[in-house]
Amino acid sequence: MANGIAAKAPASSPARRMTMQKLMRRRSTTALALALPLIVLISTLVIYPAFYAVYLSMLDRTMEHFTGLRNILFLLHFDTFWMVVKQSCLFAITAVIFKALIGFVTSHFVHNLPAKGQRKWRGMLLVPWVIPTAMSTIAWFWLFDPSYSAINWLLAKFGIESIPFLGVPGWARFSVILVNVWYGAPFFLIMYLAALKSVPDQLYEAAAIDGASWWQKVWYVTLPMMRNIIAITMLFSLIVTFANFDIVRILTYGGPVNSTHIFATWAFALGIQGNNIPMGASVSLFMLPILGVAAYFILRDINRRGSSV
């Protein structure tokens, strides 16, 4: 835009160049001033704490002596730690896969409906995402409750024996995943529905003329067109699910016998409740590799799209 003005006045007199320079200077200083609060906030409350966490993880329990990697090495020889690693991966990966599947299926169903009814259904199905997780998880906690369990009451009506949802490691793992899927699937539904709407109808018509079956349409038209959104939503969700805290904290608090602890809840139990801040920091740092990988792919996608536009 500055070039445009300059081109219109090719005889650029020195005075004019001065004002242009002043404008440019003013422009970048204003820009920096406008962005400054953001830069300050992010560097003091996000970037600095992130590096501080690395430093904290290298202290001993009293936080007076520097111990290097001893905390990390200690964790690597600790059975509970490996259980937490396994449970975190199981929790995040299973939950994301099921969220994506349910989101994909339900988005197709909603997309099938006549346009008038879609709004109503979409509005209804997004409710789990809108309710604060802490509160809906309390409701789930009670739905699972052994003595009052409303789900077991229903199962009993069908003659199925009552299930100790939160009392046995296997079922407890299933329950935390179920609640996470319940909470997160609507987000996928909304994203995939938006993606479905952006697929041009002509492609389906062309496929129909070529005699494509329903499966072929999904496989050769829908999936390739939605590939980007599917990938990015799953990566986002992987990060958020991996770092989840509320659901496990409220539903099982890591129990029975630490079997449902994930990184965030275990770090909380060690760091804040156990008053061993360096150990808690070390545990939470183990989230970094997965976050880094997911962030790399998300960023690559954004850059690619940025250059293609």
Partner: peptide, 16 residues
């Protein structure tokens, strides 16, 4: 990128 840094990574250093 900072949006991708979760609260569960930052609560311990912020506490300190």
């Amino acid at each position: 990128l900072t949006y991708l840094i979760p609260d569960s990574l930052l609560f311990i250093p912020l506490f300190k």
